[in-house]
Structure formats: structure tokens, C-alpha cells
Design a binder for these strands. Structure first.
Lengths: 137, 137
DNA sequence: CTGCATCCCAAACGATACTG
DNA sequence: CAGTATCGTTTGGGATGCAG
């Protein structure tokens, strides 16, 4: 019991770290916006409410499953609201909450950096790949 | 050939959308920082160079594989540099490039929003879960 | 129209063992 | 010390079918 394998101490460190991460707000936010569809939905709702089917069309390429799942997550987090209109057929509208709207400023910052600097990243990638090719040749 | 199944048109739309996404700088940046370890490495390098083993210790919980992989990606993107010192044993230092350092401001913005607002998100989650529980009871 | 349940495949990741 | 190679498991996510 006084002896501990390397695997033991590693898994112990991992548990402590996981706990740390779970409590970290930045990590939690990163987990949210890193979701492939979250940012797209948020942006789609930026200028007002949208129906489920409108989102489905506007965010081409998203599956029903992922759209529904994404909307649930955002609703649960208080970033959007879901309004059900009981008629035939049913109608559901999604709207940003003030909290959700405030997240758009973060997205805008990301967009700004990307548009200003991603070109440089792409160039770096090509340079790296080119060098890797010539090294292996 | 004039007829197209729903599945066909969907996969066609998906291809077009994927192409659109691949060319989108914001998407590319999101793909980077959404990586679980990228932001942690970037922050770890914020105040200067670090050796591989230092990073490995500082970012507890990361496996060798993921750390190496993350460092390669960041190096390829021109966000960090890798300096090899040939001695026995070998020594490798990683350092942020100006480009990588500029990304820290984005990370800081995320951190600020998270610290200011994630509490509200957590409360929303509890409220949502509580309601879900009482609804199923 | 909106959404849930199921199946299933591919990619991501961790653990482990081995190398210059 | 700083990786690379391989394997097995987990997870994400699409396709499909069904339901209120």
C-alpha cells in the first residue's frame, strides 16, 4: 500500500486533474463553443428567432440528431429559449437569451482574429508540409 | 439521373457545406482552439519557453501521445517553435511565436467571459435538470 | 413539423511497449 | 529525455425509422 506503481500515480493525477477541469469555467466554456454546431446555431440566431426547420435549412449539413442535440444543450445552458406553439403542424421557435447574445461578442473576437491571422497559419502549414516532403525524399 | 433521392441531395448539400467550412477561417480557428489540449499548451507557454518534460508535468493528465501530437500541430500552424539541443540526454524547448502569443488574447477573452458568466450557465443547468426530474416523476 | 430511439461506422484518445 | 508504434476502447455523429 505504501508502494504505488507509475500507472497508479498517473491515474491518481488524472483524477485530480479531471476534477480540476470540471470545475474550471474556462474549460466549461471551451467545451461548449468547441462543439461543432454550437457556434453556427448561435450565429444563425443572432438577428432574431428562428424555427427549427429554418435552422435546419440555414445550417446546411447538420443532421436532425445533431441540431436537436445542440438546441437542447443550449437551452439547458440558458443560452437560448424554446417556444412551442401548439398547432397543426407544431411550430417551435428558438431565441437567444441575453446571456446567449453576450456570447456572440466572443464569437466575434474569434472571427476577427481568424480573418486577420489565419492566412499566416495556412502559409505556415504549407511551409511545414513542404519541408516534411523534401525531408522524406 | 434526373431523379435524385433525398439522401442524394442531402449528401450533395453536405459536400458543398464541408467545402465551405474548410475554407472558412473562423471555422479553422475554432477547430484549433477547440482541441482539448491546445489551449492548455498555449497557456503553459505564455510566460516563456518550456521543455517537453516540463509541459508534460505542468499539464497533468495529458498522455505522451496527445502532448506530442498537440505540439506538432501547433508547430505546423506556426504558433510555436521547436528548438532541439543535441546533447546527452536530448533537450527540446518549445516557445510561442508572436502569432501564437497573439492567440492568448483570444483565450483571455474566453476566460473573462467564462469567469463572468459561467455561474449563470451552471444555475440554468440545474434549473433545467430539476424541471426534467419533476416532469418525469 | 419537430423530435426521439436505434443501429452502426469512423475517428479520437489512452495505455503500453519500444527506440535514438 | 523525447519521442514513435501499435492496440483496444470509447465517443461522436450520421442514417434510418417511428411518433406526437
Amino acid at each position: 500500500m505504501t508502494t504505488m506503481t507509475a500507472a497508479d500515480s498517473r491515474s491518481e493525477a488524472k483524477e485530480a486533474y479531471d476534477a480540476f477541469l470540471a470545475a474550471c469555467p474556462s474549460r466549461a466554456l471551451l467545451d461548449r463553443i468547441s462543439d461543432k454546431w454550437v457556434s453556427l446555431v448561435l450565429v444563425a440566431l443572432a438577428d432574431g428567432s428562428r424555427r427549427y426547420s429554418e435552422l435546419s435549412r440555414q445550417i446546411a449539413g447538420v443532421s436532425q440528431k445533431m441540431l436537436t442535440q445542440t438546441l437542447r444543450i443550449l437551452e439547458r445552458d440558458g443560452l437560448i429559449t424554446r417556444e412551442l406553439t401548439v398547432s397543426v403542424p407544431v411550430r417551435v421557435d428558438y431565441t437567444l437569451t441575453p446571456l446567449g447574445a453576450s456570447l456572440l461578442t466572443i464569437l466575434a473576437a474569434i472571427k476577427d482574429w481568424a480573418e486577420a491571422n489565419m492566412d499566416e497559419v495556412f502559409v505556415a502549414r504549407e511551409r511545414y508540409d513542404e519541408q516534411a516532403r523534401s525531408a522524406s525524399a
